[in-house]
Amino acid sequence: MTTAKTRKGKTPSKQGRGRPRCEEAHKKILKAAYEMLDEVGFMDLTIEGVAARAEVGKPTIYRRWKTKAQLAMDAFLSAVNPEIAFPDTGSVEEDFREQMNKIVNLMNSSRGEILATVIGSGQVDDNLMAAFRENWLLPRREDAKRIFQRGVEREELRDDVDAEVAIDALYSPLFYRLLLKHLPLSDNFVDELIDVVFKGLAVND
């Protein structure tokens, strides 16, 4: 009886400690994966290396992420998502301007090189490209379409323009310069893009 009670008494304390340890391990894995992604790129990133740096076993990682691509994208997004959210300034044009400036700031940092590496590596790794589309591209486009629709509802933007085309017109040039590096990414470039594209999007009084 004493043994049974002792075991029962110990169980809650073990469970109480388990969740924080689980969350701590999750954060350590993402941090380790992001650091290695920055240091060696996606192609040389390994689950073994992440496990060693995070001080966890490989099974701990595989229970959370089935592929290296999924882990890499989650690690990248956990670092950058808070920085690139859309504001609500009261003007949809300014909402896009501010958010695109956030993207440019990210692209001009070390995270931009990681993003370029992920896109480049995705050309030869279908799993990585699928993870990029699912976790980065599509959520970002859904956010942009939501802001676009807000502009239509406020009668700031035309309702006869395809939102997908408008988003491509605004954001594709940023990725073009990120990948080809033929010209700089700057706030002035964002201003010029906004001025040109919104001439075709804005409702004419």
Rank of each mutant, 00 (worst) to 15 (best):
F42C: 02
G151V: 04
T11Y: 14
R154T: 06
N188W: 03
N108P: 10
E55N: 14
S186Y: 07
E153G: 08
L71I: 02
V92G: 04
D160F: 06
P87H: 04
Q70F: 00
M100H: 06
L30C: 10
G41R: 11
E83W: 11
E93F: 04
D95C: 08
Q149I: 05
K68P: 11
L185P: 07
Y62T: 13
P59M: 08
F42M: 09
G57E: 12
I29F: 06
L174M: 14
V80G: 00
T117Y: 02
F42I: 05
D74Q: 08
H26I: 02
S91R: 13
A79R: 09
A25L: 03
M129K: 11
S13I: 07
M100Q: 05
V118T: 08
A52Q: 12
L30E: 03
I114V: 15
K14D: 01
V190G: 03
P12E: 06
E24K: 09
L37E: 05
K31M: 03
F175P: 03
D160N: 14
P173Y: 10
R17A: 14
D159R: 12
V196S: 09
L157M: 09
P173T: 11
E153A: 15
D159V: 07
A169I: 04
K10I: 08
L180A: 10
Q70D: 15
R154P: 04
D126G: 10
L30F: 11
M107G: 01
A169D: 01
V196G: 02
E23L: 15
R7K: 15
V124H: 13
D187A: 06
T3M: 15
F76I: 10
A144N: 04
H26E: 15
V56D: 14
H182I: 06
A144I: 03
K199N: 07
T60I: 02
R53Y: 00
S121Y: 02
D95I: 09
D38H: 08
R17F: 15
L45E: 02
A72D: 03
A85Q: 13
D195R: 12
S172D: 09
E24S: 13
A85H: 10
F175A: 08
S13G: 08
I61D: 04
G41F: 09
T67P: 10
L180K: 06
P184C: 00
M36N: 05
A54C: 03
A52P: 00
T117L: 00
W65K: 05
K28Q: 12
L115A: 11
R141V: 07
I61N: 07
G57D: 11
N188A: 06
F148C: 05
A51Y: 11
T11M: 13
Q123R: 11
I84S: 09
S91V: 02
T67V: 06
D95N: 14
T6D: 14
